[in-house]
Design a protein around this nucleic acid. Structure first.
Lengths: 196, 196
DNA sequence: GAACAATATCTAGCAATGCTAGATATATAG
DNA sequence: CTATATATCTAGCATTGCTAGATATTGTTC
């Protein structure tokens, strides 16, 4: 009897439509435009149906965030492929910033809005860890304490994205700032090697 | 006739009480707890009075943010004084992170919540520029392109604060990450000097 | 000091939000 | 076909930011 499977499939499809609608509205009008009523309209079901899929509105945002982490990981891996060493670092940094600035709503879901997604802990979802590892891969050739450097690299990129997006640093100097970060990793790595 | 002055003084005092109440509630319970009704209760006036002081709720958040920038500037200057060069850099970085992590609600008002405060533009309020200059002061000895390096330094610190606060990097490695950033500025500065 | 004008403040309410209880329709099973 | 379980909806609550219109309070003028 395949009806149970069909039902499960339909449910999954509907859930996906909710997430897609949330993301679409957020990218078009910002997260304030994403109301439960509006999502209900979009999928042509009543509000309570949404609560049978997600615990609350924040959980919908979190679902979009998970999508975002998957895509960020893809973007970073792609940027890293085809180049090595210093160039890979630079390309990944550029790709990270492009991702954050081109999809502000998605990036907000991942990093700004309140979610319960946890990192740097046991039990972190693999989607969230993969992005970190894509960064670690291009950092690794330049240092021994890969985790420390990767965290710092990531923080620098996130900071650049956040401050540029809120208009607090000069957009036209983005290239220079990235060059500084890349150089910092390369140079500090070399001196680390030189020291031991 | 000093009644006009007295009125102006009273009004200013009331405005200050609003901002103080907003900040206190935010630091105790988060910004979600800061409702206009609650603030009205706190100052013992009705809601519309608040709107004679501030255009909307966001403007109250912005007022708290401005306070925050003043205090951050003080904290950074204090951290810089009494040490020079590399130590000043490190102390400022530590102070920045301590500020962000000890006063999360205040820091949110400054950097996360929506406000219309603009930076890196003509017409930026002096309170906002001063913090940047406190960072620039400790960076300057190590580079020629002070603005670029300061923006990058700031971004790195902000990123560290944001990611640490949301549990995405390991708190116990804070010192190592700061050391990396300090070293990056010192080293890249030296090489910049060597080159030019 | 009384009558008027201007300012300050309040009461009451709107529209929107997240979320939920209870009623109702729909599908499944006996 | 009937009874049960599942899926969905209608209707509403409590809370939010914000505002119009009524009402005090203060100031001015004769």
């Amino acid at each position: 009897m395949g009806t149970a499977e069909r039902k499960a499939r339909d449910r999954a499809a509907r859930e996906h439509r909710i997430v897609a609608a949330a993301r679409a509205i957020a990218e078009r009008e910002g997260w304030d435009g994403v109301t439960v009523r509006r999502l209900a309209d979009e999928i042509e079901y009543s509000q309570p149906v949404l609560y049978s899929h997600f615990k609350n509105r924040d959980a919908i945002v979190a679902a979009v965030a998970v999508e975002g982490f998957k895509e960020l990981t893809v973007a970073l891996r792609e940027a890293a492929s085809g180049s090595t060493g210093r160039n890979a670092l630079k390309n990944v940094a550029l790709a990270y910033l492009a991702f954050a600035l081109d999809r502000p709503a998605l990036y907000d879901a991942m990093f700004v809005l309140p979610t319960d997604l946890r990192f740097a802990e046991a039990g972190t979802r693999p989607e969230l860890r993969a992005g970190f590892e894509a960064l670690a891969a291009v950092v690794a050739p330049f240092c021994v304490e890969v985790a420390d450097v990767t965290e710092t690299f990531w923080a620098a990129l996130h900071g650049l994205a956040a401050l540029e997006r809120s208009g607090r640093i000069r957009p036209r100097m983005r290239g220079e700032r990235i060059a500084l970060i890349v150089r910092a990793i390369v140079v500090s790595g070399n001196s680390a090697r030189a020291r031991g």
